[in-house]
C-alpha cells in the first residue's frame, strides 16, 4: 500500500478537513479537523481499500503554546498490508470535546478513559467516561503541562541540579 494511494483517497473524501500532512516522520501522519475525526476513522476502518481495522494506540498530548493546545493521537494499523497510519486532531482547552471511536473499536474504551483521566479530553457518546487510573475525586488533569511533577511548595527537596 503506497503512501500516495492513502493520501489521494483521504484528500478525495475529506479535502478541506485535512489540515496537515506529514510524510517525513516514521509513520505517515495526518492532522484532521476535530469535528470529522469520527468519520475519518470510520472511513479508514470500513472502506474496503483502506482496511485499517486495528487501533494500535490512542493517547492525548498537550502543547500549551499552541492555539489548539490539546490533541488526540490515533495509531491505526492495516494488518493485511502491514501499513501504519497516525491521525491527530487538536481542540481547545475551553471546549475539549471530540467524538468517541469506542463504537468502532472496543479497545478505544479504556484508552479514551485514560486520555480523559490525564488530559480532561471529553469523548462524546462514550459509554462510560470516568477516571480509570487516578482516584475519582481528583479535580485536575495531571498530564497537562501546567501541573508540576512534584509538589512545588516543598522546601526540603531541591531537584534543580539533578537533571529535572
Amino acid at each position: 500500500m503506497e503512501n500516495s494511494f492513502i493520501i489521494d483517497k483521504l484528500y478525495k473524501a475529506f479535502g478541506q478537513d485535512i489540515l496537515r500532512m506529514d510524510t517525513t516522520s516514521d509513520i505517515l501522519s495526518f492532522t484532521v479537523a476535530s469535528p470529522v475525526i469520527h468519520e475519518v476513522i470510520q472511513f479508514l476502518k470500513e472502506d474496503e481499500n483502506m482496511n485499517f481495522i486495528f487501533l494500535t494506540d490512542l493517547c492525548g498530548v498537550h502543547y500549551p503554546d499552541r492555539g489548539l493546545p490539546l490533541g488526540v493521537v490515533y495509531h491505526l494499523h492495516n494488518l493485511r498490508e502491514n501499513k501504519r497510519l497516525r491521525i491527530k486532531t487538536f481542540i481547545t482547552l475551553n471546549h475539549p470535546k471530540v467524538a468517541t471511536v469506542a463504537d468502532l473499536f472496543s479497545s478505544a474504551n479504556w484508552m479514551e478513559r485514560e486520555t480523559y483521566d490525564f488530559y480532561g479530553i471529553i469523548f462524546e457518546c462514550h459509554p462510560n467516561l470516568k477516571r480509570i487510573l487516578n482516584v475519582e475525586y481528583m479535580d485536575f488533569f495531571p498530564m497537562r503541562k501546567e501541573y508540576p511533577l512534584e509538589d512545588p511548595t516543598r522546601e526540603d527537596k531541591d531537584d534543580r541540579y539533578f537533571g529535572r
Binding site: 490525564f118 480509570i132 487510573l133 487516578n134 482516584v135 495531571p142 498530564m143 511533577l149 537533571g163 529535572r164
Partner: peptide
C-alpha cells in the same frame, strides 16, 4: 484498576 499507578508518563517528561 489503577492501584499501583506510578505516573510513569508524567515522570518521563521530567527525566533525561
Amino acid at each position: 484498576i489503577g492501584y499501583i499507578h506510578r505516573a510513569f508518563e508524567k515522570i518521563a517528561e521530567h527525566r533525561p
